[in-house]
Design a protein around this nucleic acid. Structure first.
Length: 353
DNA sequence: AAACCGGGGAC
DNA sequence: GTCCCAGGTTT
């Protein structure tokens, strides 16, 4: 153990947060927390962790569930492939590993949705394996400690930091050390205005010595967001609504949405009316528009218009699912629809054209 | 190596 | 508005 690792671990034991997944040694729950927390803040993820633990206390409960229920509980967390992979991995452990959670990095990383970081985290935290755990926090802490000013987005730079961390790993104590560094990044060595006054290892920090905390880590600009225009026809008959499951290789895979018309602009009322007559010919209808909402994803900018279309009798559209009003909340769907459908409906279209 | 996969909150 | 968050998979 070096002075550096001793100081960081000591700081963690005195200042670390009391998070629910730190109170268990169950590898299933540690894995669950790691997947939920991928690219997710603690404030957002912890209620999902509690919800999953309550509904699926053990890995067999998760494996036996329907994917749709897993997606339902995941609703609103984003990156929905995490939920589908989580479920698939649970089934894999039950079917291929006799229900016993793998206890080695080399096996854990074979689970769907588990990459280098998560495999290291689970093997380190649950089984005390000496693995380097490198997440966003660790990259930031060590780029500053070592004064690495290269673009943190480049794999080459990440590999360099990764190698530094591995060479400084306190063997036997790394499970403790890894958590300590991550917590230091979350509470002290923050992206903007790091709290160097209260940092236990500021005397080791190259960025602080050269007063470059604000410029390290350096990150190149991200690409501009693609704009998309989504016009939705929400067909309603009585107290039932028509939804469709989204397919592969796009946002929101596996989630449900109303009938979609994606175009290069938001449709006018007349264009919506014409579209309804094409999609549901010979059905009298009335239409109400919800306010158009802008929805920002990390790499896309969505303009979402929903029109409530009430028809007499069900239009015949392939692969649709009619959902009763009382089941709407449990339907796995992008969070934007919960928001829009809670809004007050606006203009009315003429009944017939 | 780069693109793609969400949603929320801090600034 | 910009950035980032207990990253992973696909191309």
């Amino acid at each position: 153990m070096t002075d550096f690792s001793r100081l960081v671990i000591s700081w963690f034991h005195q200042n670390g947060r009391d998070l629910p997944w730190r109170q268990t040694s169950d590898p299933y729950r540690i894995w669950l927390s790691e997947v939920i927390m991928q690219q997710t803040r603690v404030a957002q993820g912890r209620k999902y962790y509690e919800r999953f633990c309550e509904r699926f206390p053990a890995i067999n409960n998760l494996a036996e569930a329907h994917e749709e229920e897993v997606l339902e509980i995941w609703q609103g967390l984003g990156y929905y492939s995490r939920a589908r992979n989580l479920h698939a991995a649970a089934k894999w452990v039950m079917e291929e590993k006799e229900g016993v959670f793998p206890d080695k990095y080399e096996e854990i990383i074979k689970m769907k949705g588990v990459g280098e970081y998560t495999a290291a985290a689970v093997s380190s935290f649950a089984f005390h394996e000496d693995q380097v755990v490198v997440d966003g926090n660790v990259l930031r802490v060590f780029s500053r400690i070592f004064g690495i000013a290269d673009d943190i987005r480049l794999p080459k730079t990440r590999k360099q930091i990764y190698d530094y961390v591995r060479n400084h790993l306190p063997l036997g104590e790394s499970w403790n050390y890894n958590q300590s560094i991550m917590e230091l990044g979350a509470l002290i060595c923050t992206p903007s205005q790091p709290n160097c006054q209260n940092c236990p290892v500021s005397i080791f920090c190259e960025a602080r010595r050269t007063n470059r905390q604000a410029s390290i880590p350096f990150k190149s600009k991200s690409k501009e967001r693609r704009k998309r225009f989504l016009n939705y026809l929400l067909f309603q008959v009585g107290d039932e609504y028509l939804f469709f499951r989204r397919g592969e290789k796009d946002i929101w895979e596996g989630l449900f949405e109303p009938f979609l018309l994606e175009t290069d602009r938001i449709f006018s009322g007349h264009e919506i009316s014409a579209a309804v007559e094409k999609v549901a010919p010979n059905h009298e209808f009335s239409a109400f528009s919800f306010p158009v909402e802008k929805h920002i994803l990390s790499h896309q900018e969505l303009f979402v218009a929903v029109w409530l279309i009430k028809t007499q009798g069900r239009p015949e559209i392939n692969n649709g699912r009619w959902v009763h009003e009382k089941d709407l909340a449990a339907l796995p769907k992008p969070i934007i629809f919960s928001k829009i459908m809670g809004l007050k409906k606006g203009s009315t279209l003429p009944l017939t054209f």
